[in-house]
């Protein structure tokens, strides 16, 4: 009786297996990260509501291009899902193709964001100045989209590592957790962008 009890070494109650600890760890990290974004967005809301001369975002920011960027990120989330599924089904070519496409989506997003920033800076919008009214419009715009952009940049690097690690078929039906964890991060970055797009560009 006690013999069998000691032989069981796995955690008593937890439904999670050691392979998926990393997943829980990533979820916890994302909660913390969400609080950081939440604080930035809350501060954005507070200063915007108190401001009398906040420009209408659509007049200053190019909505069409950012709508395309949003679409691009959503597509890259889809390819991420496909890449994970390919890895789980031992489809190495599919894994390479879809993770590669995800990285490409992130990279194009970054390129477009760099183009957008340059354009806005040339027309006078800076971190502490705004020709169309409240200076905090520029401040919050660059800080929030910049902070998100850093996450995309980090994600592209992260996925490049995953792609390199799995290039020769390291990930398969038994070992796909690292891909799944990277996917969690990527979907989070995507979700945050939808919030940013809504609050900073659309509303």
């Amino acid at each position: 009786m006690s013999e069998t009890a000691t032989a069981r070494l796995e955690p008593f109650e937890s439904p999670l297996t050691p392979e998926s600890w990393g997943k829980l760890g990533m979820w916890i990290f994302l909660v913390g990260d969400a609080m950081t974004f939440g604080t930035l967005l809350a501060a954005y809301g507070a200063v915007r509501f108190a401001s009398a001369d906040w420009p209408h975002p659509a007049d200053v920011l190019g909505i069409n291009m950012t709508a395309f960027m949003t679409f691009l990120l959503i597509c890259s989330s889809v390819t991420m899902v496909k890449g994970l599924s390919a890895a789980r089904h031992d489809d190495l070519a599919g894994f390479r193709r879809f993770i590669g496409l995800t990285i490409l989506g992130g990279a194009i997003f970054l390129g477009l964001q760099a183009y957008e920033w340059t354009h806005l800076i040339h027309s006078g919008l800076t971190l502490s100045g705004n020709p169309w009214g409240a200076s905090l419009f520029g401040t919050t715009f660059f800080i929030i989209t910049g902070f998100h952009g850093m996450h995309v940049l980090g994600g592209v690097g992260y996925l490049l590592c995953i792609l390199a690690l799995g290039w020769n078929g390291k990930f398969n039906g038994h070992n796909y957790h690292p891909v799944e964890i990277a996917g969690l991060y990527w979907h989070f970055v995507d979700l945050v962008w939808i919030m940013v797009f809504t609050f900073v560009y659309l509303l």
Binding site: I28, V31, G32, D33, M35, T36, G38, T39, L40, A43, L127, S128, S135, L136, T139, I143
Partner: peptide, 23 residues
Amino acid sequence: LLAFPVLTAALGMLLFDRLFGTH
């Protein structure tokens, strides 16, 4: 986990006010 990121974000804003002339 929930509280420290709030401070981190606020500290970032304070640092921007001090270093880069934001308000």
